[in-house]
Design a protein around this nucleic acid. Sequence first.
DNA 1: ATGTCTTTGTGAACGCGTGCACAAAGATGG
DNA 2: CCATCTTTGTGCACGCGTTCACAAAGACAT
Lengths: 218, 218
Amino acid sequence: MPTVSSEELAAAAGVNSAKLRKDFSYLGSYGTRGVGYDVEYLVYQISRELGLTQDWPVVIVGIGNLGAALANYGGFASRGFRVAALIDADAAMAGKPVAGIPVQHTDDLEKIIKDNGVSIGVIATPAGAAQQVCDRLVAAGVTSILNFAPTVLSVPDGVDVRKVDLSIELQILAFHEQRKAGEEAASDGAGPAAVTREESARSADQGPDGDVPAVMPA
Amino acid sequence: MPTVSSEELAAAAGVNSAKLRKDFSYLGSYGTRGVGYDVEYLVYQISRELGLTQDWPVVIVGIGNLGAALANYGGFASRGFRVAALIDADAAMAGKPVAGIPVQHTDDLEKIIKDNGVSIGVIATPAGAAQQVCDRLVAAGVTSILNFAPTVLSVPDGVDVRKVDLSIELQILAFHEQRKAGEEAASDGAGPAAVTREESARSADQGPDGDVPAVMPA
DNA sequence: ATGTCTTTGTGAACGCGTGCACAAAGATGG
DNA sequence: CCATCTTTGTGCACGCGTTCACAAAGACAT
Ligand SMILES: NC(=O)c1ccc[n+]([C@@H]2O[C@H](COP(=O)([O-])OP(=O)(O)OC[C@H]3O[C@@H](n4cnc5c(N)ncnc54)[C@H](O)[C@@H]3O)[C@@H](O)[C@H]2O)c1
Ligand SMILES: NC(=O)c1ccc[n+]([C@@H]2O[C@H](COP(=O)([O-])OP(=O)(O)OC[C@H]3O[C@@H](n4cnc5c(N)ncnc54)[C@H](O)[C@@H]3O)[C@@H](O)[C@H]2O)c1
């Protein structure tokens, strides 16, 4: 029976072994003292807890550049997500297949959601249409939304929204980039417009990962 | 002079006003007691600290479905990011314009980076090519990478990598979705067939905002 | 000037996640 | 069956970020 110790796993993941064990303990006591964790059993337990043993139908709304790329992306299926339908407001697209899936018109949105038992929706429409699309998805029964449009969606309680904002990802990189430049040469004439930098006493930087600034300028 | 109080801003952003004030205080004392913050001045100070007053040239490597969508995305320019070049390994694409920008061949990658003073690179190649592309970008001087390929990139110290993993975004939604369903009906017959997934248990990366649950109590 | 009123800036308390350290569990060998 | 050795599971302490609470600063009216 192949096993792994918390020490091995922790080293591979780059985390503390005690934290890893404590995390696992929330799932139950699946380890064997003196031996470690049964790999297969552990994988199954984690998969089940994370919902990976289920198959989740999703719909993508807004089949433009991004929506089409998502539809073509094979990485979803391998994680248990199935693109149940593609929806767009453009009547000219209706019926035309993208990634082998025929695009359907927004008129049928509610029916599509219900027929497929969809609870997860992806919004890839222009920002202006996002809230409206969101409202229709929620009204039709969708309770989880992945939003690519640069808008903050308002939803009722019980509905989860995750926003993917690629500009913010770049901004976070640029922020750290700026710091790097500022550290090696405090008096640096770089930059087009004269950037006047005063001292800034910010607290500890989060190492590997980053956070999102709470408030952003326009 | 238009002003805002920390209370107003906090309410709009959905955060605690004391935290907001303390955050602002790290930038300096830009508020006026009894009045609030001068909006225009505050926006400028935050923009400057975040690096939004600078113009950042970026290159996109891998102009497929996703890369092309990114190239066409207008949201980057409005945040101070300029697509300096598009790079692909496919010789047939060389010279053909995408989003008005001619695609260049990977052979010229190093020269493109240096000529444009690029420090931020976006990788949208297949997973198999990502590490190799990453290495070349870093060697050419890139110190920040936004990675869309489903691979963990290893980079030397001083180089930042942010990974955008859309499958994980969906998984997080599915996880919460499962909890919602599990609460109203505790006794569930579990998934269809017992799915045995062979993979390692990797700790999830951070998302733009919300948190990735390490593990949750059962 | 002086007083009042609003809002900032921040010291201090609180809560929570992380890591340490170890007793208990169980395997393994004699 | 007992001794030893490995590794889990977890109580406890530490550190850090968040929140509370309030003195001080400044605007504004009188
Ligand atoms: N392309 C990117 O890389 C990128 C990156 C980040 C964010 N985004 C955002 O993602 C969204 C889509 O980007 P895109 O480049 O694919 O845009 P796009 O214009 O190519 O596609 C938008 C699609 O949405 C459809 N649409 C419009 N209104 C609709 C509605 N009410 N219901 C259903 N469909 C509707 C349009 O017919 C079109 O097919 C935008 O909000 C954009 O800001 C895109
Ligand atoms: N499409 C999506 O929605 C999506 C979502 C998440 C992640 N991803 C990931 O993003 C990456 C790109 O996805 P895609 O759908 O655009 O794939 P794609 O196959 O459409 O495009 C890949 C492009 O990369 C180019 N390429 C290959 N090797 C290269 C190299 N060594 N140097 C430079 N260019 C090279 C190819 O010529 C092609 O144009 C993949 O790793 C994919 O897993 C895509």
